[in-house]
């Protein structure tokens, strides 16, 4: 399998999952017929940007997921950059992000982003949003109509991927040079 295959495979898997959740976004768009069910976020404009409050929720969730501590300004900046870039490149992703961000807030409760790290961690655990490596679950079909299932199995991996493929994620492993950053040609010959 070539590198191109790998990237394609990841894109296909993720897009497949997102398309399952947002079927009207996949492939050719057909007008919805009378009585057809529409996803609550279906009418989101494809050119809309993620509102700041929703971005704050996503960052707050990602902090819990990828580090278990508050992100530094550098990390936060790179994460926001990565989320925005991906949201802009595909309307399906924007819809996924919006669903994830809105799912985190609960009626009568403080905004997710306003909670302390410990409180957010408690919410994540209570609502079973963290990755689950149990094999039987990965073979269970995704339920597009269950937001919790979508957030846990598509939204959460998407945010983890966003962080770890960004310069912040590469910094975790000590890399200043990584795919997408042109640099010193001989850097790859050295153990540093």
């Amino acid at each position: 399998m070539t590198r191109r295959d790998l990237l394609q495979a990841f894109g296909v898997v993720l897009r497949g999952a997102i398309a399952l959740v947002f079927p009207a976004c996949a492939g050719r768009r057909e007008p919805a017929g009378p009585g057809s069910s529409t996803h609550p976020l279906e009418n989101t404009s494809s050119t809309a940007k993620l509102p700041a409050s929703e971005m704050e929720n996503l960052v707050a969730l990602t902090e819990v997921l990828v580090q278990g501590r508050p992100l530094s300004p550098f990390e936060r900046g790179k994460l926001v950059e990565a989320i925005n870039e991906r949201a802009l490149s595909e309307p399906e992703r924007l819809r996924l992000y919006r669903l994830t961000a809105s799912f985190l807030d609960q009626p009568g409760q403080p905004r997710f982003a306003d909670l302390s790290l410990a409180e957010r961690t408690e919410v994540v655990l209570r609502r079973r949003l963290v990755p689950d490596s149990e094999r039987e679950e990965s073979s269970r079909p995704l339920s597009p109509s269950e937001p919790q299932d979508v957030v846990r199995r598509v939204g959460v991996p998407e945010l983890i991927a966003c962080y770890y493929r960004s310069p912040a994620g590469w910094a975790v492993v000590g890399y200043e040079s990584f795919p997408g950053r042109c640099s010193d040609l001989l850097g790859y010959t050295r153990p540093d």
């Binding site: 819990v64 997921l65 990828v66 580090q67 278990g68 501590r69 961690t121 963290v130 990755p131 689950d132 490596s133 991996p157 983890i160 991927a161 962080y163 770890y164 493929r165 994620g169 590469w170 975790v172 492993v173 795919p179």
Partner: peptide
Amino acid sequence: QPEDLALASGKWGEALRRHV
């Protein structure tokens, strides 16, 4: 890649960072 390791691990939080 960090992303591959993170997604395949099934871990999260501090344990995920340590794993990567």
